[in-house]
Design a protein around this nucleic acid. Sequence first.
DNA 1: TCAACTAGGTACCTTGAGGTAACCATGCAA
DNA 2: TTGCATGGTTACCTCAAGGTACCTAGTTGA
Lengths: 129, 129
Amino acid sequence: MQEPENPVADAFVAHCPSRGLLTRIGEKWTMLIIVALAEGSVRFGALHRRIEGVSKKMLTQSLKNLESDGLLTRKLYDEMPLRVEYTLTPKGEELVPLITALKTWAEGVVVERVRSGEIKLDPAFQEAG
Amino acid sequence: MQEPENPVADAFVAHCPSRGLLTRIGEKWTMLIIVALAEGSVRFGALHRRIEGVSKKMLTQSLKNLESDGLLTRKLYDEMPLRVEYTLTPKGEELVPLITALKTWAEGVVVERVRSGEIKLDPAFQEAG
DNA sequence: TCAACTAGGTACCTTGAGGTAACCATGCAA
DNA sequence: TTGCATGGTTACCTCAAGGTACCTAGTTGA
């Protein structure tokens, strides 16, 4: 509890840029985008369909942010109709196992709680189980 | 990209409760609180001092949320002055390695970028490096 | 008597994250 | 020529996350 874990960067310190990265990861759509890109390049439309509930605006904005953080790259193909593909950078790929683990953990907690009767899933979900 | 990773819970689906857990983890102070509690019980005041920049209100609120999610417990000791200790539950402890890894990753990225000259740290930080 | 420590509660306010909906340019097909 | 698909942009609006400031209540010390 007393010493910084890292001599030059420490997220416990208010102005440390690492806090910005953690904040970015915590933004509403970031984790899902990264998991969706885990296995390779994905087109905008495919992302939009995969991540249920995200608006085009927020998807665009989130992708831009991740690009400016150096976690993914955007490639525009000069075709018609337009084709745009998003791909994780090596830095972004480092995140995949970490975020996948979080997502798996969260889903595991839900599964446990459903099994124990603590919570119930949506009717739409029941049929899947 | 096509099949849900889990038969009954999938964060890609809008109404899946696992999304709520991911959202909770992403909230501004959650990750830091969990890392701060990684090594055992911590008092409110110590948390407040450790997590630079958090207000008492937000710390209280975040702790309440994590308690209602079953990730930590609050224990009030009937002493004067008041003593309250927060402790991770087993479920909360499961998160420690995952979130620690994210924090370490974020700090590592910052360290790399400082070394490469891509970014500069605050003067207050320079002396620590 | 006044201040400070303990751990909050609460009222008030601002900011911005995020949502909705419309629009754009292009090409294809009915 | 109306509609759909591509991948966005833009204006507008709302809600809640999060901040500030002040309150409690008991104890201790100057």
